[in-house]
Computed example of a mutant assay.
Amino acid sequence: MAGRKINPIVKMVLEFGPILVFFLGYMRLKGQHFMIGGTNYDGFILVTAAFIPLMLITTAILWRLTGHLSKMQITTAVMVVIFGGLTVWLNDPAFIKMKPTIIYLLFGGILGIGLLRGKSYLRVVMEEVVPLKHEGWMILTRRVCVFFLGMAVLNEIVWRTMSTETWVTFKTFVLTIAMFAFFMLQGRIFTEYAVEEGTEADAEADEN
């Protein structure tokens, strides 16, 4: 079901604002330690604790404004609660650092299963935004699947081998820019396999 249209800038702020706030908060509190309830927490843990409700609030606002949330948005919010909560509860930053890996593996795996069945699950969530012929969806799905799995591996390498500050910068900017750049580079698919007006039925017939 398609949601109501909202200002693209408002949508971008709601989706990426919490990530930027997380980055700014970490840069402000990095290296600092706070004693709370007899437990010592560093700045990263406190920023993570603040990030969880902020993410839920912006997701709720997005749902309120559009009347719709994508499966990826819902999954991301759930993962933030689970892994962010574990990070704060166990006072261990490893959990929130693993979150992008789990999300990318989950979606990459789902797309991969669909490809093995000869289907494009990506089409289910994107068709109303980008109508393509069946062949175009299959090509795009294969590329997105590989991209997600590659990002999962890259996130693991960064958080396991580099400093927390490097990972926060990587999470905030590199992953976001990589996502935008990836889809920008798929312009040829969107043009070559675009479904022309009045041919939607033909596209469905191609898939079946």
Rank of each mutant, 00 (worst) to 15 (best):
I9P: 08
G17Q: 00
V21T: 05
V21R: 02
G25H: 02
R28S: 10
L29H: 01
Y41S: 05
D42A: 07
G43Q: 04
I45P: 01
V47W: 01
F51L: 12
I57L: 15
W63I: 02
H68M: 12
L69P: 06
K71S: 12
Q73A: 15
T75I: 10
V80H: 05
V80M: 08
I82R: 03
W89S: 10
W89M: 11
P93G: 13
F95S: 08
K97P: 03
I102Y: 10
L105K: 06
L105T: 04
F107R: 13
F107G: 06
G108D: 09
G109H: 07
G112T: 11
L115F: 09
R117M: 14
K119Q: 12
S120V: 07
Y121D: 02
R123V: 05
V125K: 12
E128Q: 08
V130L: 11
K133Q: 13
G136M: 03
T141V: 11
R143M: 12
V144M: 10
L149S: 12
W159K: 07
T161W: 09
W167G: 04
T169Q: 07
F173C: 01
M179V: 03
Q186S: 09
R188H: 11
I189R: 08
T191I: 10
E192K: 15
A205V: 00
D206L: 02
